[in-house]
């Protein structure tokens, strides 16, 4: 079976007087519908690996294959198009546009993709919010939401274009334990729907809620094992 996302000899070095190695020689395959946690101590390269896998960054060596297709030669616009269509990102901070309502934030990627009518976009946006128990907050501004509600809005936005891959970078970092667990429950549901979910977390408890745990230490792959006891 072709991996949804695959890393081959993935290395990222920040140039400078003293070059900084972020990740080094990473080989990983992520199967469709898998739910993987990338863990490791602070500065181990977790987020850097996620950005490489999500085509937000370019590797210094090695490459990322998306559904078997190499991405190294793609220009920025094509990588952007690929992200828009197939990837959904959730960051530690929600990064919602403060002037837009919750619903407008959710449908923003749909508007850029431009495949649906305005009515269809709104209907889909409202359905996504409803699936995350946010239906009644659709007309609110982000500033009127709690942290957990904002993060759920960000997840709804990540799902706007029905992506095959969800990449989340410390999505619970700014949330309390209850909201953190709720977010992970949503991510699990998304994986069960067939999406490939990769989540970076430093919280081993939450990582234990996934199917597979990849641990990095000093930019190198230290552990790659299924989670035995969820």
């Amino acid at each position: 079976m072709i991996a949804a996302i695959a890393a081959r000899g993935l290395t990222r070095i920040l140039p400078g007087p003293v070059p900084t190695v972020l990740v080094e020689e990473i080989d990983l395959d992520f199967a469709p519908g898998s739910f993987t946690a990338i863990t490791g101590p602070s500065g181990s390269g977790k987020s850097s690996l996620l950005y490489l896998l999500g085509l937000l960054d370019r590797p210094s060596a090695g490459e990322v294959l998306v559904e078997g297709a190499p991405t190294a030669e793609l220009d920025d616009d094509t990588r952007g198009d690929l992200r828009l269509e197939r990837f959904g990102f959730v960051f530690q901070f929600h990064f919602l546009l403060p002037e837009f309502t919750v619903l407008d934030n959710v449908i923003l990627p749909m508007r850029e993709l431009g495949q649906l009518s305005a009515a269809a976009m709104r209907a889909r946006g409202e359905a996504l919010l409803a699936s995350l128990d946010m239906a009644e907050l659709a007309r609110k501004l982000p500033g009127q939401l709690s942290g957990g509600q904002r993060q759920r809005t960000a997840i709804a936005r990540a799902l706007a274009n029905d992506p095959r891959f969800i990449l989340a970078d410390e999505p619970t970092g700014a949330l309390d334990t209850r909201n953190g667990r709720a977010v992970f429950a949503i991510l699990r549901r998304l994986a069960e729907e067939g999406r490939t979910v990769i989540v970076v977390t430093h919280d081993e408890t939450l990582a234990a809620l996934t199917d597979r745990r990849v641990q990095l230490i000093d930019g190198r792959l230290a552990v790659d094992a299924p989670v035995q006891d969820r």
């Binding site: 920025d76 198009d81 901070f93 990064f95 546009l97 923003l108």
Partner: peptide, 16 residues
């Protein structure tokens, strides 16, 4: 800057 960053990460092109 954050809004621009998130829009770019979502896939909005430089032209947009």
């Amino acid at each position: 800057a954050r809004d621009i960053a998130i829009m770019r990460s979502i896939g909005l092109s430089r032209r947009v």
